[in-house]
């Protein structure tokens, strides 16, 4: 083994190598879940608690304003919850990764001849699975409280859109997770970003009755676009504008944040 037999040409990692590494790391992340099933609790409980809470607390009054009752609100809320699911699950990726980073095992990964992006991709892949689980639970609860599926194709398209947007957000939170020193600060930062974005949007209530300045914010809030696009896809109505806007945001966020996250991860000391 003493004489170096590997030439410079071998230094590049082929695509198949990247896939193999990401697969191996994904297996690791899945084993984590098997070892610690409680870590999935939030993905299961969060959609149950929030869907029920919003439907029964706001359902009556907002439903009335929508010109119906609680049923009308369920129909309005569920596509919005889909957007919220993407956001909340994406935040988890930051804290989880930060924790992982502070353990010695990252040093080992970083001393191995693998693309550093593999570690991040595997993390995102497993978080997307969590997000899909949360979304599935949310739909079960929604059906139980009277959600009406009018268009299954549209529903699937809305889920796909939420996954696309959610994964682009994950790069943002991954960057936070790599950059910030502790889990607590990642959580605090995530919370600060999350709350205004979630509530200053059309996720939970129509924006017509909000003051003008807030409407300006919600109009540009990508979560509004995602919620409205999902609404259109699931319940019918105009879709194109919000759909393109959401896709645009997803592509832009990924294009900007993914390289930053990988770079920060590569140079993290």
């Amino acid at each position: 083994m003493s004489a170096p037999t590997i030439t410079t040409a071998d230094a590049r990692i082929p695509l198949r190598g990247h896939l193999r590494h990401t697969g191996a790391l994904l297996r690791r992340n899945l084993l984590w879940i098997r070892q610690d099933p409680e870590s999935m609790a939030d993905a299961v409980l969060f959609p149950i608690v929030f869907t029920l809470l919003f439907v029964y607390v706001f359902g009556g009054s907002i439903g009335q304003a929508l010109g119906g009752g609680q049923d009308a609100y369920v129909q309005y809320l569920v596509p919005g919850m889909l957007a919220m699911m993407g956001m909340t699950m994406a935040q988890g990726v930051g804290t989880g990764f930060n924790q992982d980073f502070n353990s010695g095992v990252m040093d080992r990964f970083r001393s191995l001849p693998i693309g550093r992006g593999s570690v991040l991709f595997a993390k995102i892949a497993v978080e997307l699975l969590r997000m899909l689980l949360a979304t599935g639970v949310m739909f079960v609860v929604a059906l139980l409280v009277g959600f009406d599926v009018t268009n299954w194709g549209g529903l699937l398209a809305a889920v796909a859109l939420a996954v696309a947007f959610g994964s682009s957000l994950m790069w943002v939170f991954l960057t936070l997770g790599v950059t910030m020193k502790s889990v607590q600060s990642v959580q605090a930062m995530g919370f600060l970003v999350l709350m205004p974005l979630q509530f200053g949007s059309s996720i939970f209530a129509p924006t017509d009755s909000m003051p003008g300045w807030l409407q300006n914010f919600t109009d540009y809030n990508p979560l509004s676009a995602l919620a409205d696009a999902s609404r259109g896809l699931m319940n019918g109505g105009p879709v194109a504008h919000d759909l393109w806007l959401t896709l645009g945001w997803s592509v832009a966020l990924t294009a900007v944040m993914a390289p930053i996250a990988v770079h920060k991860f590569r140079t993290k000391t």
Binding site: M1, T8, A11, R28, G104, S111, L112
Partner: peptide, 24 residues
């Protein structure tokens, strides 16, 4: 300049055991 090649021929045992505690 040759980190990838280098990583192929080294082994590292860190100061704080760098194994994944959740994995068998």
């Amino acid at each position: 300049s040759q980190p990838r090649q280098l990583r192929r021929v080294i082994g590292l045992t860190g100061q704080y055991a760098s194994v994944d505690e959740k994995l068998p």
